[in-house]
Design a protein around this nucleic acid. Sequence first.
DNA 1: CCTTGACCTGGAGCGCACTCCAGGTGCGAG
DNA 2: CTCGCACCTGGAGTGCGCTCCAGGTCAAGG
Lengths: 123, 123
Amino acid sequence: MQSYSPGQVVDKTGFSLDTLRYYERIGLVGGVARTSGGRRIFTDDDIGWLEILRCLRDTGMPIARMLRYAELARAGDETIAERVALLEEHDRAVDDQVRNLRAQQRHLRDKIRWYRSLSAESG
Amino acid sequence: MQSYSPGQVVDKTGFSLDTLRYYERIGLVGGVARTSGGRRIFTDDDIGWLEILRCLRDTGMPIARMLRYAELARAGDETIAERVALLEEHDRAVDDQVRNLRAQQRHLRDKIRWYRSLSAESG
DNA sequence: CCTTGACCTGGAGCGCACTCCAGGTGCGAG
DNA sequence: CTCGCACCTGGAGTGCGCTCCAGGTCAAGG
């Protein structure tokens, strides 16, 4: 099994070192191994978990909610249904986000067209 | 021409009264009329401007950028091309946002499917 | 052995976009 | 005239998600 230094994890996940430490501090990432000297050693599992966090973060899930998900994940297999429910609810939230974005984008484009019609008149 | 009290504007735009005052303070909204007693009176034009702000805000434009747009709008007709350029750039940013959201949503859905396949195995 | 650069900790600080507060005023209804 | 609610101001406070800092440690290369 591969293992990764903090710097390698920064490169692989795109999280800053400070963010990785922050996530560990608040309990969003747990059980990261250490060398005898105290340095973090990340495994492929850790990377996988961080990639899930990135996905949730980039789709706008608040940290409090990610924390809830992390808690469920730590609790074991009996929480799988609840985890799925949480992710599905979030999936719907993402749909809403996209819909709202598209709706506002239509207004934005109307405005752009309106400006263009102005220039057409006066030009 | 219609005019609106602050409370009516809150209802029509969805901005809080504090946000309206904040926007005026920082110069995002300007030229709002007052009664002799100092109360704000909004016009249809003001409402229109606030609706643009809502559109830009809801599509993630930072306030600094909205401020730039407001500045251009105040400057008069010679800035129309620049305003269009700004809005078009933002339109592309919204496209990017939607694309990223959709890409991450695919990962999210993969994860949900993966959980489902787990339950199918053990159930 | 020494250097140097990546890494460690706890805690303070930051940027954004509001949001709340204290203390005071305007004005329509009764 | 008075009540009460909507509104006013300047300024402080909030919540989120990091980000930075001081001061120290570890470990690979020369």
